[in-house]
């Protein structure tokens, strides 16, 4: 469906959208810098397959479907976290070690944080996609992104499991990032689920208490 300029979600057209240019340039710089010398090149490649596919499809689809600037901001934030995780192979992210020491955790929690971030940061873009492209309305627009977050989180765990079994098992274990926890998949999905629920509660609250003002300020 082609969106008209009257669409309240949409920001400036891409050619004149300074915010979007800055966002894209910032992400490319960060990604390029982290691509120079990753801790494990093989794992870095494996982690980046889906990220590159996502960025490519966002860039190619912008002619037909342009998200609001706020959604692009959230997606970029998630991709930046993922780029950092891919650079350090998740289980070895320094910030994660710092958290592990500070809170006496048994493992590096960075990958769990990014799973949470997946639900927390992407639920809003998913909601926007559903509302604008599929005409989803009412409480469905809050429920379906949560359902989508857990479903695609589960799908990701399945792909991870297949990749780990098919590709080089040693690399697979690094990629999988279970860090020896048999409940890792369930905990990751629960993290994504709680992130999505939190975002939808925030969205609901902001649409009740801040009608259009914040959303308008962020998207234009």
């Amino acid at each position: 469906m082609i969106m008209t300029a009257k669409d309240s979600w949409q920001g400036q057209p891409v050619a004149r959208n300074r915010f979007l240019h800055g966002l894209f340039a910032g992400y490319l710089l960060l990604w390029g810098w982290l691509a120079i010398a990753p801790v494990d090149r093989g794992d870095w490649l494996l982690e980046n397959v889906l990220a590159i596919a996502l960025v490519a499809s966002l860039v190619l689809s912008v002619r037909w479907f342009q998200f609001s600037n706020f959604s692009y901001f959230l997606i970029t934030l998630f991709l930046a976290f993922h780029a950092i995780g891919a650079h350090y192979t998740y289980a070895k992210v320094p910030f994660g070690f710092y958290l592990q020491d500070a809170f006496n955790l048994s493992r590096n929690p960075f990958d769990r944080i990014v799973h949470f971030g997946y639900g927390f940061l992407l639920a809003y873009p998913i909601r926007e996609l559903l509302m604008r492209l599929a005409g989803v309305r009412g409480w469905w627009s809050y429920y379906l992104p949560v359902s989508a977050a857990i479903a695609h989180g589960g799908l990701f765990e399945m792909i991870e499991a297949f990749a780990a079994q098919i590709v080089n098992p040693e690399l697979g274990m690094a990629y999988l990032g279970t860090q020896g926890d048999e409940w890792d998949a369930q905990k990751d999905m629960a993290a994504a689920l709680s992130g999505a629920i939190l975002t939808m509660l925030c969205t609901l609250a902001s649409s009740k208490f801040l009608p259009n003002r914040l959303a308008g300020a962020l998207s234009s």
Binding site: I150, A151, G153, G154, A185, M189, A190, L193
Partner: peptide
Amino acid sequence: LGLSGLWEI
């Protein structure tokens, strides 16, 4: 898929 994931959790 989502409910299956929830069930596993």
